Amino acid sequence: MTIRNLMLGGAITATLAVSAWAHSGASGVVKERMEMMESMGDAVKAIKPMMTGEATYDADAVRKAARTIAAQAGDDLTSLFPQGTDGAPSEALPTVWTERERFEDLADALEQAALGLERAADNGLHAGQSGMMGGQSGMMGDQSGMMGGMMGEQSPMMDGQTGMMGIGNMMSAEHIGQMPADGAFVMMTQVCSACHDRYREEDH
């Protein structure tokens, strides 16, 4: 599978993860967090075509989208999930509260990834012949999942057993900022997907 297809799949998942929360009937903090998720989803959608080669790359637009997401991640995100705000019309699963520390770690990881993407905007897109996500030295080492070659086989960013972030091995915004912008974008959307898969109720 090509890097373009991998990124497109990740971006679509992430976009659905953060933009499909907006539903009628919500009020108060539930409505506020749905609107936040929708805002982040719009930011992802705005730059996804650039990352997949469907639109001309625009570093300023990438920075703007990354800042939008970073500003709504971390503590700003988790503060909108106080105890007792589950249940319809919210689509947040009880695991948000029963796994609070893990949820907060993922929110922090999203902030770092978005800040990293902002830093990486001027790096442009990956243009090498050896796929950024292939091989033992690529971004996605075959044996080690997310960040295989860059972080080593024993410390993948995405835990292969759980699909969750290996938070102890989370990369800083500074390190992510050294990647091509499309690599940083993939990382950010993978965090979105990990959070979506564990903490949001699927549509039926």
Rank of each mutant, 00 (worst) to 15 (best):
M1A: 04
N5W: 13
G9I: 05
G10M: 01
T15F: 13
V18N: 13
A20E: 13
W21T: 15
G25A: 07
S27D: 11
K31D: 14
M36A: 14
S39I: 07
M40Y: 00
A43F: 03
A43Y: 00
K45F: 07
K45S: 15
A46D: 15
Y57C: 13
V62K: 03
K64A: 15
K64P: 11
A65H: 06
A70V: 07
A71D: 14
A73V: 00
A73M: 02
G74N: 11
G74M: 04
D75I: 10
L77Q: 14
L77K: 14
S79I: 07
S79T: 09
P82T: 09
T85L: 08
P89G: 08
S90L: 08
P94V: 14
W97D: 03
T98P: 14
E99S: 10
R102S: 15
E104L: 02
D105T: 03
D105Y: 09
L106I: 12
A109L: 04
L110Q: 08
L110Y: 00
Q112W: 03
A113N: 14
G116R: 01
L117E: 01
R119N: 05
A127S: 14
G131P: 12
G131I: 06
M133E: 01
M133N: 03
G134S: 09
G134V: 03
G134F: 05
M140K: 10
G141T: 05
Q143C: 12
S144W: 05
S144C: 11
S144Y: 06
M146F: 10
M146R: 03
G149Q: 08
M151K: 08
M151Q: 13
S155V: 05
S155P: 09
S155K: 14
G160I: 06
T162Q: 11
M164P: 00
G168D: 10
G168A: 10
M170C: 06
M170W: 02
M171E: 12
S172M: 03
H175K: 15
M179A: 02
P180E: 01
A181M: 10
D182H: 01
M187D: 01
M187S: 02
M188S: 02
M188G: 03
T189D: 02
Q190Y: 11
S193K: 09
C195P: 01
D197G: 13
D197H: 11
D197I: 05
